[in-house]
Design a protein around this nucleic acid. Structure first.
Lengths: 176, 176
DNA sequence: CAACTGGGTTGCTCATGGCAACAATTCTAG
DNA sequence: CTAGAATTGTTGCCATGAGCAACCCAGTTG
């Protein structure tokens, strides 16, 4: 923002803040639109791949699977929502046998949430199906673009991280 | 339950599709995370810029502003949600005096939705404030990345378009 | 022991959106 | 010209997901 960089590649030679402003506006609008559409798409997708699997639940499961057993609070803070929501989701997932809660031997209050074998299995199926759908939608994209997109969104996500979520306690700061 | 959706041995020809697969998975995960986080961020943002302005309403207003007066159905299809949702949002926006509905002289059923002067004014304020917030968050990004991000998300959005939304036109009530 | 802290759950409410059913209007046959 | 189809927008009912507050239970500390 401070420095009008001589971009070697792209020819967008807009001077500093102007270009940033325009670009920010584009990002904002596209993001806003995407956010709104994403709901129906995500529900649709979830219903395709597995009717039992709620869209929100899938996100939790991927994290648990990727990060290994973790406590509910960590999970909540990782996904960026409050504990109550996660608690309910987890309760549901436990009720259908995809995860189980294991008491932490060290800390009696805490609990390790982990996938059951059936959960692992289902995740395989669902991820397969999801991958297929995504490939139908984005398969024609050049790999480099996909990678870039993933990287940028990850960057976006990490940007949100440093600002704090309604984490229910400790950091319930309300940006004012 | 038994498993009605098992796809037994689909041709897993990963002929060079490995990279695509991995990239798709990244995109999927980041998108999933983003979608989940975006809600709280968006609400937070909306509350900052203007407490009266619901997150969803803002999206509608930007579109109306950009595209000019339009009918409710077009608006709904443009934003990718059903008519009922938009109808309610619009009713709310009208109740707080940001838009008004003008009867179409040609088609008695239709109505042109347009911004009131007050709506224009408020949009200015809100957009200013939003821009500021976005700049705080993304201002350090190189312009080229912002532009690329915007372009990719736009591409993503257009990808969804061709697939159709729950547009509510497809299935109609079957007569008296 | 009591008091405090931190992990998780539950009750209530809100925001958003879908589907179905509806009223009002226009269009299209016969 | 009139009956039925189609379209525009509205409303009722319900589902999902999330937040806040209040609560319970286990550990920690004095």
């Amino acid at each position: 923002m401070s420095n009008p960089v001589d971009s070697p590649g792209p020819p967008e030679d807009l001077t500093g803040a102007d270009g940033v402003d325009a670009a920010l506006e584009s990002v904002e609008q596209q993001l806003s639109l995407f956010w709104r559409r994403a709901r129906s798409v995500s529900q649709q997708l979830s219903r395709q791949v597995h009717p039992d699997m709620e869209p929100a639940a899938y996100g939790l499961l991927t994290i648990i699977r990727r990060e290994g057993p973790m406590r509910l609070t960590d999970l909540a803070s990782c996904v960026g929502v409050g504990k109550p929501s996660v608690s309910r989701q987890i309760a549901f997932l436990e009720s259908i046998g995809l995860i189980f809660k294991e008491a932490d031997p060290v800390d009696g209050r805490a609990q390790s949430i982990r996938l059951t074998p059936r959960g692992e299995e289902k995740m395989h199926q669902v991820q397969d199906a999801r991958n297929q759908v995504f490939r139908e939608r984005l398969g024609e994209w050049p790999v480099s673009e996909l990678e870039t997109l993933a990287r940028y969104i990850a960057k976006l996500n990490s940007t949100y991280e440093r600002d704090g979520f309604p984490k229910d306690e400790s950091k319930r700061d309300q940006a004012q």
